[in-house]
Each structure stands twice: as structure tokens, then as C-alpha cells.
Design a protein around this nucleic acid. Structure first.
Length: 491
RNA sequence: GCCCCCGUAGCUCAGUUGGUUAGAGCGGCGGCCUUUUAAGCCGCGCGGCCCGGGUUCGAGUCCCGGCGGGGGCACCA
């Protein structure tokens, strides 16, 4: 039966028995430390290019997990891995002594040990190895690790037990270290330009800043409901009002919606706001930022994604939303400015609850978005879809907004931020009407935010970047779940 | 929420038109071996096929329901 039943499969029982044997032999099975150790990568670096057959006198002390073993009687090879890399150990009975050697050989794959020995390059393969003369158990593994050759392929286990995925799959380790580096580079880019990183509430009395359904939770002492934020937008703009001219926040947003290869209910968002900038400036900065991050993390701005090579080199393609829909859906939304007119161009009658804006959004999502493989800015959205964006300076009925697409996925959204409090109030009223009509994604009325705008917010450009999706693009991952350590799963 | 596909040893997988005691490699266990590198050599299945019903002389194989996963639709970043 499975391990969970505790019925004691033989593999588990064997490991338990070994644990007892080690304890009986007086070995401390879970010691507290192993000091003055080197990263395996450092040892490798120190002996790069060592010629086959050369045995050095250079001593090293390393620790890690036993990931493979090749036995040969009175000698054997072990592969030891730590967070930095992997190295081969040559264990010989004559160097270790009969009893320590016997105990070492009897360890299980997955056990953690610390060792000391001298560096050599093997005669045949020239592989850097440590001929060890001391070892110590650092932690016993009581469960068998995944297959050392095939790795762990079962996607459910990979997502539910990411520790095993990381243990077994090099590619997974690569993705998550790359993710961390990309995030560090994004921060650095903003920090270098004087942006101030802040933290605003995750638990909010009122949600806002995006069109989405929120998660609701309850505060016991205050006896009231709170919302998990769907965006950081409104708080960050209040900080711009307060005089933080360049501000950003990197953190989790939560949206109560379906799960898919590009949606997780909690996801990482980077939002930044720059006073005195507009959406043209944010677009220019954004393409530079992404290209620079790619260059620093991948060493190139050209990333492979299946059959295609995506070129992140600026400038990216810019096309108005109207032109994009005209090109890909064959409909000119400007010539069909009412719901009735636009609905008439469609094959089937759309949901009556969907207004003109929703229909435009539908055309965008269905016909346009999947086609935007190379980095593309779509510009100038209908005001109906954008309650926080400033009216277009030249085009009636549109706002100054762009969304950036890569690989057929939206990765960022930006506006010239609406800073006229009276206009913002009218937008909220419009949204409140939508909400009352049953649109659960409409924006609730936020009086506190309006009051802040009434104090005066400078003209401002703001951007929201989906970190998980960006990392997908940088790594070539096909699913968000490949770049989120513990994606949402059913219990 | 709907549709399609999938669920066999610790891991990776095979299991013919339903038919004798369910198989392989890795791992494990036992033995032999001081330079192997996915993997030294020899020997041993260590699971009863996600769960619960049903059809049948007989079910891993067919049917129904459930649980879990993947893909698609819908929706969104």
C-alpha cells in the first residue's frame, strides 16, 4: 500500500531499520551542524581543468545529499549534491577504515552526509572527485527519492511535492533560480532609477484597482470582513499623492477566478508609478526593462519558445487596439460604436449581460491575444474597460492605456493614470451601476481613494507586470504551474 | 460550471479481442567486487492495478458513480 497508509512498504521499513541500526551503532542521526564546509561549486571551481589521473593534496570539506552510488566492494563512488552543485566521492575502505566504510556503503540514497578528502581527477573520465577519509551522517532520509535517471515526471506529484521535483529535476531547479534572479533584476532596475519599494495592505476593507472578483475573509476582533487585494493600484496612487514620486510594490494579488495554465488564484504582481510620466514613457521604460532583465538573467534578449524565437529587443511593435481587432477579427470597433452594432457583426448573439466594452474585450481575448507572439503593445482602450485610466488626449471614447503581450499572453498593463477626482467619481458611479446590475467584477466605490485624489495627484504613469507570466516567457515554460513553486491545487 | 483524456510496484513505464499465480528498468534486499559515472556482476518482485458499486463463469481491461490530475471551453493578470 502507499506510504501514507503507514502499512509499511518494504522500502520504508528498510529505512527505518537502518535508522535504528545507526542509532544502535552510537551514531548521531540528526546532528546539529557541519561547520567550515565549502560549497561544492567552489571545490569544482578550484580544480577546473585538472588533468585525468592527477591526485592532488588539496583537502576539502563538503556536505550534501547522496544522489547516486556505484559500489565496488572495498571501494565505491558516491555522487554528493548540495545547493550549489554535485561532486563525485571516491570512498575507499583503506582510507576510511573497515567500520566507517561499511556504515557509509550501507547508507541510503537521499541521506545527507558531510565528508572530508582530497581532490583528484579520475583516470578514465577525468571527473573531479574527492577521495574521502572522513565522513559523518548529517540527516537520515526515511523515504526513497525519485528515480535517479527518469527523475520525477508525474505532474501532480511535482506540483504538490515541489521539494521532490527540485530534488529530481534539474530543469525545475533552473527555473526557480532564474525566477529569483529575474525578480532581483527587476528590483535593481527600479531601485537604480530612484523608485521606492513599499508594502501596502494585503487585507483591505475595500478592494479595487482591477476588474476581478475578490476573496473575502473575516477579522474576528473587529468583527468585519476584509478582502484580499486584487491589486495594489489605489494604495500606491495615494502614495504618489503623498509625494513619493516613484514608487513600486512587488507582491501577491488574489483573484477569485478559475485556474488555468496562465491563471493562479494568487499571483505575483509588480506595480510601479512614476509621477510626471504618461503611458508613452511607461511603454518605453517597460520594453527597456524587460530586455535588460532578459540580458542579465539569460545573457540574451532572444528566447526560445517551442518552435519560435521571441525577440525582446526594443523597440517592440506598437498597434492600436482598434487596428489589432480590425486586422485579426475583421471588425472595426470604431464603426460599430454601440452594443447592438457590434453584436450584429458576430456569428452568434452574445450574452445580453455583456455591454459594448465586454464585447470588445472578448474580441481582444479570442482573436487578437493568441496572435501576439512577438512582444507587442496594444494601445488605446475603450473607456468602459478602464475605470482608472485617463481619457485619450486625441481620441474620443478612448483612454491612454496599453497592454503588453508576449507569446500570446498578456504580461503587463499600463495607463496614463486618471487624476481628475471628479472624472474618477463618475467612473466609480458607472462601475457601481455595473455592480448593481450583477457584474461581479465591477469596481466598488472607493470614497477614501477619491478624497486622496482631491488633494491633487500629479500626472502619473503606472504599470502592472505579471511576474509569473514574465518568468514563463523567460524560461519557455508552457504553464504558470511550472514557474510557481506551489500552485493552487484541489485538496 | 461544461466537454475530452488519464490514474498499474518507491520512481519511470508495459499490460494483446475481458481468461492461468499482473510484468520490465531504476530503486530495495542478499551475495561477489578498490576507478565507476543513467547502468560493475549474479540472484530475489517487494504492488494486486485511485476509491465504491455493477455486468460476467471470470475485470487492470467493459458499465455507472466518486476522488485526483492534464488539456480544452468560459473568465481573467
Amino acid at each position: 500500500m502507499g506510504a501514507e497508509e503507514g502499512g509499511g512498504t518494504d522500502v520504508l521499513r528498510d529505512r527505518r531499520e537502518k535508522l535504528e541500526r545507526l542509532k544502535d551503532a552510537g551514531i548521531e542521526v540528526f546532528p546539529h551542524e557541519f561547520p567550515e564546509r565549502e560549497d561544492i561549486a567552489e571545490v569544482r571551481a578550484a580544480h577546473e581543468g585538472l588533468a585525468p589521473g592527477i591526485e592532488t593534496e588539496s583537502r576539502h570539506r563538503v556536505a550534501g545529499r547522496i544522489v547516486a552510488r556505484r559500489g565496488h566492494g572495498k571501494a565505491c563512488f558516491l555522487d554528493l549534491r548540495d545547493g550549489s552543485g554535485q561532486i563525485q566521492l571516491h570512498a575507499r575502505e583503506d582510507l576510511l577504515g573497515a567500520e566507517p566504510y561499511g556504515l557509509l556503503v550501507d547508507l541510503d540514497l537521499g541521506d545527507m552526509i558531510g565528508v572530508e578528502g582530497t581532490a583528484l581527477a579520475t583516470e578514465r573520465g577525468g571527473e573531479l572527485s574527492l577521495a574521502i577519509d572522513r565522513w559523518r551522517l548529517l540527516a537520515k532520509s526515511l523515504r526513497p527519492p525519485p528515480d535517479k535517471f527518469h527523475g520525477l515526471e508525474d505532474v501532480e506529484t511535482r506540483y504538490r511535492h515541489r521539494e521532490l521535483d527540485l530534488l529530481a529535476n534539474e530543469e525545475s531547479r533552473r527555473i526557480f533560480t532564474l525566477r529569483a534572479r529575474a525578480i532581483a533584476e527587476l528590483r535593481r532596475w527600479l531601485d537604480d532609477r530612484g523608485f521606492v519599494e513599499v508594502e501596502t495592505p494585503v487585507l483591505q476593507p475595500l478592494y479595487g484597482g482591477a476588474l476581478a472578483r475578490p476573496f473575502v475573509t473575516h477579522h474576528n476582533a473587529l468583527d468585519r470582513d476584509f478582502y484580499l487585494r486584487i491589486a495594489t493600484e489605489l494604495y500606491l496612487k495615494r502614495l504618489v499623492v503623498g509625494g513619493i514620486d516613484r514608487v513600486y510594490e512587488l507582491g501577491k494579488d488574489f483573484r477569485n477566478e478559475g485556474v488555468s495554465h496562465k491563471h493562479n488564484p494568487e499571483f505575483t504582481m509588480l506595480e510601479w508609478y512614476e509621477a510626471y510620466a504618461d503611458y508613452g514613457k511607461t511603454a518605453h521604460d517597460f520594453e527597456l526593462m524587460v530586455a535588460e532583465v532578459a540580458e542579465r538573467v539569460l545573457g540574451t534578449t532572444k528566447v526560445e519558445r517551442g518552435e519560435v524565437t521571441i525577440d525582446l529587443t526594443p523597440p517592440w511593435k506598437r498597434v492600436t487596439l482598434r487596428d489589432a481587432i480590425r486586422e485579426h477579427a475583421g471588425v472595426d470597433i470604431a464603426e460599430h460604436p454601440t452594443r447592438e452594432a457590434l453584436a450584429a457583426t458576430m456569428d452568434s448573439e452574445p450574452d445580453p449581460a455583456e455591454g459594448w466594452g465586454k464585447l470588445v474585450d472578448g474580441l481582444l481575448a479570442k482573436s487578437v491575444e493568441p496572435e501576439l507572439i512577438q512582444p507587442t503593445f496594444l494601445l488605446d482602450y475603450p473607456v468602459e474597460l478602464s475605470p482608472f485610466a485617463k481619457a485619450h488626449r486625441a481620441e474620443e471614447g478612448l483612454v491612454e492605456r496599453w497592454e503588453a503581450f508576449i507569446g500570446g499572453v498578456e504580461i503587463a498593463n499600463s495607463f496614463s493614470e486618471l487624476n481628475d477626482p471628479d472624472e474618477q467619481r463618475r467612473r466609480f458611479e458607472q462601475q457601481a451601476a455595473e455592480l448593481a446590475r450583477g457584474d461581479e467584477e465591477a469596481q466598488p466605490f472607493d470614497e477614501v481613494f477619491l478624497e486622496a485624489l482631491e488633494h491633487g495627484m500629479p500626472p502619473t504613469g503606472g504599470v502592472g507586470l505579471g511576474i509569473d507570466r514574465l518568468v514563463m516567457m523567460l524560461t519557455g515554460a508552457r504553464s504558470l504551474r511550472e514557474v510557481v513553486l506551489f500552485p493552487a491545487m484541489r485538496s
